[in-house]
Write a protein that binds this DNA or RNA. Sequence first.
DNA 1: ACAAAATCCGTGCACGTGCCCGAAACGTAA
DNA 2: TTACGTTTCGGGCACGTGCACGGATTTTGT
Lengths: 352, 352
Amino acid sequence: MEKEHTSYGVKEIARRANVSTATVDRVLHNRTGVSEKTRIRISEIIKELDYQPNILASRLASRKIISLAILLPGVSEETDFWSAPLNGIRRAESEIKQYGVQMKYFFYDINDKNSFQEHINQLLELDVHGILVAPSFIEETSRLAAQCAKRKIPFIFIDSDVPDLQSLAYIGPHLYKSGYTGAKLLTYRLGSNKKVLFINISKEIENFNYKEIEEGFRAYFQDREQANEIVRIDIRETDYQSVARHLTYVFHLNKDIGAAFVTNSRVHTVASFLKNSHRTDVSLIGYDFLKENVAYLENNVIDFLICHRPEDQGYRGVMALYQTLVMNAAVTNPYYMPIDIITKENYEFYQN
Amino acid sequence: MEKEHTSYGVKEIARRANVSTATVDRVLHNRTGVSEKTRIRISEIIKELDYQPNILASRLASRKIISLAILLPGVSEETDFWSAPLNGIRRAESEIKQYGVQMKYFFYDINDKNSFQEHINQLLELDVHGILVAPSFIEETSRLAAQCAKRKIPFIFIDSDVPDLQSLAYIGPHLYKSGYTGAKLLTYRLGSNKKVLFINISKEIENFNYKEIEEGFRAYFQDREQANEIVRIDIRETDYQSVARHLTYVFHLNKDIGAAFVTNSRVHTVASFLKNSHRTDVSLIGYDFLKENVAYLENNVIDFLICHRPEDQGYRGVMALYQTLVMNAAVTNPYYMPIDIITKENYEFYQN
DNA sequence: ACAAAATCCGTGCACGTGCCCGAAACGTAA
DNA sequence: TTACGTTTCGGGCACGTGCACGGATTTTGT
């Protein structure tokens, strides 16, 4: 039951190179103080033995603390969507805090651009080693990225991407394909004479996610011969009354709507409207595994929910930072999450 | 950047109890050699400080090796389904081998009961600390479980369950609900006058998985008023010719089959038949993210695939054993995997 | 040629826990 | 009292790596 020598450590390398472990250590962390000759000699032995440092011992011996900043929308009473990524982050935290990783949390108001910027400012006061951010606002995120580049701090986007900012990785859905998939599900049993309603409910004009979704959604109809008419509606208020008013109007104008697609988690508001107005004939699809949405899935008002494993996004985001910072391993970028389809029949096993 | 004292260790406990760390250690591992009085005193301090052992140091200091036995069907040319769990297991292995965990693999022939038993015998020769098994045969699994109980070796089932054997956990799908979900998808756009074909293709008479699937499948029709007629067929040969022969016969007898459901990953064989006989009017659903199946998904012969994250099953299985053996943490049992729905539109992002 | 500086490298302790070994304290019997 | 076993406990090394400190050797400057 004794542990046989499964892999070699610095001691063995030192022995073979006729140096001390400290010198090997210097080479491993490419620090100064080693002659070129010995450096090469040691490097070769390291490569030859395919040396893998013992992370246990490494983290134990190192008194360094790695601190990660987490920048997320706060969980508001309006939506608890962001509790899912947060849970994933917390799970990751509990796994790696023993390894000397520390988190600093910053929760901003998703309806307030300034709040986002302010928390970025606070965050940049501290010197953290890595940043995980849900980039809700483009301009501010750009500036953050610039700062990070200057200070050489790696950062990761989750949930939505802002391209061309040299992020270490984007971890989230392929929104185009997500919209495409939604369109498929929506029309799977829809007559070709029926209209399709495309609904975007969002306070923030800046919210850019839905555009990609819409592109994918429309692309589906172009890729097929069956070309249902798409009615599009933008609703800038999120309360039920406003939504109901807009929807009443749209349904009044368009008598033959057979299906509706909501670009985000506010689908439950639409579901509520459909239920109250007894429109059981309209297929409904939306996003995210929220309690409210699942309730409408349960009683057949919502047909499908699409979900992108937000918990996993948080978990993987943290882990990716950890991987690069501690083991400096490569990270796949972008890392597209699966596009999960949730129905009344399978929701109880879904891992949000 | 120095690591501040975030949590207390044995040293602090020892200091407070006026004993040495060795005595604290004895209490922590409830070994003998401590008087009842000091044991209680130390226990209280441990509880008071909510002591969490540093796993890094623990695993590093311990020369013990934990060895896990993995008992899976081998990857045959007939199906590479089992490569997915194996990948997950390998991933887990690479993560925890640094922690002194070692794997022993046993691959049996899924078409041969004796092979299963023989590998069990081999496995029991070694003294392993935990077992992960895909229990393809009930009787033999029962005997294995009995042996494990006697030797107090925890074991975990993945992919399919054999109840009442005191396994540490079952990690896999809720097959009943899986069949139920399949029925839903299959009939989502099906006329009520159409028949539904239920196909089970399997050499091994012993294979018991499909029964639960069938129950769930049939339950769906009973739960709804819409009662399509279900035509059931059992095919005991897995080659294309045999399957085609049986299907030709069934389709000859039943002119109005609108949808077909295959209980396992052999759905591609049925897809091949449908394609060759130009039956584009039949919806087809089956299981598992195999290359062949995805190909038929791609060209619209298969409508949906249902999948239960086999890779994750392997990963979680190993991790669950690790959790119990190293950190003796509790494991949720059963651990039902999500019932994932895969279509032509979202398959490229699926993590098998 | 000699000191000063720069370069190169080894010794040894630390991280927090596991566990061996032996010492001290206690108990019992002659 | 002495002798001897048993119970209870502490000292100290080990795990593999990080890193401070200082010693040894070579190079540079005058």
